[in-house]
Design a protein around this nucleic acid. Structure first.
Lengths: 292, 292
DNA sequence: GTTCCGCATGAATCGATAG
DNA sequence: ACTATCGATTCATGCGGAA
């Protein structure tokens, strides 16, 4: 089975209209953060950010498979000494739009940007907001298991009798233990805090997005031949990881140079296809499918 | 100069009225979270939580010194498959009340609650929200600098093989790279991510609040003889740390047993004082000042 | 005195079952 | 239908007793 990559050049809000309903299994993206400077690349003023993003998230809600997941990497800036509130407002508005705010992962950036301010420390974390369409969605937890802590080596050498049978806690916390379940287990499930370094080498793109980040979520929320979408593709990290992991991918970016760069980087071969007619749009540009 | 400790038994909303305006330099507290601690504090429903807390934060705003800081430890729980939004709503409302939302620190709990669920990982972090009255506030950054040498030694000692795998650090890009930075410096400023374990030893109080947490904020935001307030004292961790660090402290709790326990623990000597008359309340109970 | 090892415990969450 | 309670799952830590 062939793995395809589609790249659209233009405004995400418009380009997304070309995608069919329920056709994407995972959306991972890091949109341009709100910025006080209005006219830089992607810099949307924080007052307008929520309205701007809601038009995009509306389309994302449409194209996402009901069992799929949307991961939004975002962090509020400091405005006049305060953390801006647009991320919180966005979450509240997206819920009204129909999204479920399932979870908030923390990306702990181990080597965050250096700097010093009189009343503030370095910002070493970002939000990874998980949104879903339904309470039931696909999650392949085993794919991202991590080695257990050291303690388990010592712990499992000798099992006492209470270890072997379930031993209920006395204080009514409803929590007991059954250590024997841990035999033959060398891995544990991770938590909702991710420890990753930021990418040091900038790839001609301002956003530093380590490959491990989309990789982790692609492993967790998709299987091979699923489709991954990044509506703010940038340098194409999400797409190249998806490609390597045998997932179909779709990228959108407003800057033609990035689109060209990503195509070149992925060694894509363009193939024109006959498109089935869909109701959601009568006239649409030809979809450009790339096959590696 | 003597260090004093005051303990008030009762509802924070009411007890706080006894404190003068602008008299506290730091508030550090961990209130009962919504729907939690039903058997000790009664458990506030998440729909009522914001209104309930606003009456308290209104008083906190009054008693806090204009150069002081309020640190609020809180985390939303899952309700019907979604993260509850009451914390975000609380932040938005507190800003309307006059608070500045200056920063959000992350407390990464290394030993978080275990468990496995089909669509969710363990929750390993909590919010430490920083609020201020003014953009200018006291912050003694040097007090919490991390000594590089010690930290390097401790880190290297604990750097087991599983640590390396878990951190997914690649030689030369992540961990190794930072080592070269450490060579030329004695101390470094911390970031806004705190790595602490919860305390699971029983102190007759269910909250796992490690001493390092209030200690860090007391160092950062106060100096000796300043006053620290915890309106949800619980087992008194904040007070005992403040006492040890030569800060005056004030604790409030609705449960008499906790108040008695804290007094006993701190070996406090009660001394009745003549109170100056204040305008904000004509009749008020005698303040109980404890001196160690 | 150290170091080692056994063990209870925790701001949790989901789904099934009971009222 | 809707709420309340219950059982099942899980892992890192610090304490205390033992070696």
């Amino acid at each position: 089975m062939e793995i395809t990559t589609e790249i659209y050049t233009g405004d995400s809000k418009e380009q997304l209209k070309q995608l069919p309903n329920n056709s994407v299994d995972l959306i991972v993206t890091s949109p341009p953060y709100a910025d006080q400077r209005k006219y830089t690349y992607g810099g949307i003023h924080h007052d307008k950010y929520v309205d701007w993003f809601l038009l995009i998230s509306e389309q994302l809600l449409r194209v996402l498979n009901p069992t799929g997941t949307f991961i939004l990497n975002i962090k509020e800036k400091v405005v006049e000494g305060e953390r801006s509130t647009y991320v919180m407002e966005l979450i509240l508005e997206m819920r009204k739009q129909g999204w479920l705010w399932t979870e908030e992962f923390i990306w702990h950036k181990k080597n965050c940007y250096p700097g010093k301010w009189p009343n503030r420390f370095r910002d070493a974390w970002e939000r990874l907001l998980q949104f879903n369409k339904n309470r039931k969605f696909h999650m392949y937890q085993e794919e991202v298991m991590v080695p257990m802590g050291e303690w388990v080596n010592a712990r499992l050498k000798n099992l006492s009798e209470t270890d072997k049978t379930r031993d209920n806690s006395k204080v009514g916390s409803g929590f007991g233990k059954n250590i024997s379940n841990w035999l033959n287990r060398d891995k544990a499930y991770p938590t909702n805090v991710l420890h990753l370094a930021t990418e040091c080498n900038n790839k001609n793109h301002s956003a530093a997005f380590p490959e491990e980040l989309p990789e982790w979520f692609i492993k967790l929320f998709t299987k091979e031949n699923d489709t991954v979408l990044d509506p703010f593709m940038g340098s194409g990290t999400t797409l190249s990881v998806a490609n390597r992991m045998k997932r179909n991918s779709i990228g959108i970016d407003i800057i033609p140079e990035y689109c060209e760069m990503v195509k070149k980087q992925l060694n894509l071969v363009e193939s024109y296809l006959f498109e089935p007619k869909e109701e959601y749009e009568t006239i649409k540009p030809k979809r450009r499918i790339f096959v590696r």
